[in-house]
Simulated assay, not measured.
Amino acid sequence: MPDRQRADARRNYARILAVAEAEVAAHGAGASLEQIARTAEVGSATVRRHFPTRRALLEAVSRERIEALAARAHDLTGRDDSRDALLEWLGEVVAYCVSARGLAAALAYDGVEPDPVHENSCSAALEEAAGPLLRRAARDGAVATGVTVSDLITLAVGIVLATEHHPDPAARADRLFRLAVAGLSPRG
């Protein structure tokens, strides 16, 4: 009987995750957990057992995207121009967050002290993957001392969340990202 329960739990998880992906794509990070449960034909308690927090659900929905962004950071690490490589990756984070509803919320820091239960695994994965990009850019003098990957992710998330209701969120987010990179003052 325990093997059957595990198989049922795995099927429920897969069904809930598939429904959650569709709901988050349609409604963003605020997708209704109750609607997810109804559509997946499971109880709300089952959804909460698999995903005890909204963040856990968003992280699961975003896992493949995070893995792709992490792989991209690894690909760019060996590039000749470390500044361009870092900015290309960060621009892709912004663009990906604009196109993948819920991803920015999954990356957002929610003020909870990091611990094994509340750690933001999406941001942690990107911080680890982009660390070599940033360290190389800092070593080359292309990034100010003290800038962290966490700072860069927070900047990207802020831009995406600030533009998500704009008529053309991708163009607006890209403009704000470029403005943040260039700075406010013209070069003299």
Rank of each mutant, 00 (worst) to 15 (best):
R187F: 08
P114Q: 13
R10D: 15
A108D: 13
G111T: 01
R55K: 04
A180L: 10
A85H: 12
Q5T: 15
R54Q: 11
H27A: 14
R187H: 01
D8S: 14
H118F: 12
M1C: 13
E164Y: 08
P169I: 07
V47A: 10
E41C: 09
A70R: 00
A180R: 06
L87P: 12
A129C: 05
V181I: 08
A171P: 09
A56R: 06
R49T: 09
V94C: 11
L103P: 05
I16W: 02
P2T: 14
L69D: 00
A71L: 01
L155Y: 07
A130N: 02
V47M: 06
V147C: 01
W89V: 10
A156I: 07
E67F: 01
V19G: 05
Q5K: 15
A138V: 13
D3C: 10
I159K: 04
P132G: 09
A68K: 04
D75R: 01
D84I: 12
N12S: 15
V94Y: 12
A104P: 04
P114I: 07
A182Q: 05
L133V: 12
L76A: 05
G78N: 05
P2S: 14
A182N: 05
A14C: 03
L134C: 09
G131R: 14
S123V: 09
P2D: 15
A14L: 06
V93E: 13
S82L: 14
A108S: 03
A156L: 05
R101Y: 08
R38T: 13
G141D: 02
V61H: 12
D8G: 12
A25I: 06
D110F: 00
H118R: 14
D75Y: 04
L176W: 06
V147E: 08
F51D: 06
P167T: 13
A14S: 07
A173S: 11
R83H: 14
E164V: 12
A26G: 07
S99R: 15
R83E: 14
R10F: 07
A100P: 06
A95P: 11
G183Y: 01
A7S: 15
D140Y: 08
E64M: 04
V147W: 02
L161F: 11
L69G: 01
A71E: 05
C97V: 05
R172F: 09
Y109D: 09
S123C: 09
T53P: 04
L57P: 10
D168V: 11
R136W: 11
G102D: 03
V94E: 10
G146K: 02
Y109V: 00
L33Y: 10
H166A: 15
T163K: 03
C122P: 09
A156Q: 09
I66W: 03
T163R: 05
V61I: 11
A100C: 14
A31P: 10
V157I: 11
P52L: 02
V149Q: 03
R15L: 11
Y96R: 15
R55V: 00
V42A: 06
L17E: 07
G141N: 07
A144M: 06
D174N: 10
H74P: 00
T154N: 13
V117A: 14
L133D: 04
G188W: 08
L33G: 15
A182E: 08
L107A: 01
R136V: 06
W89C: 13
E23N: 10
A124V: 13
E41H: 12
D81C: 11
T77D: 10
P132Y: 05
A60T: 05
R72D: 07
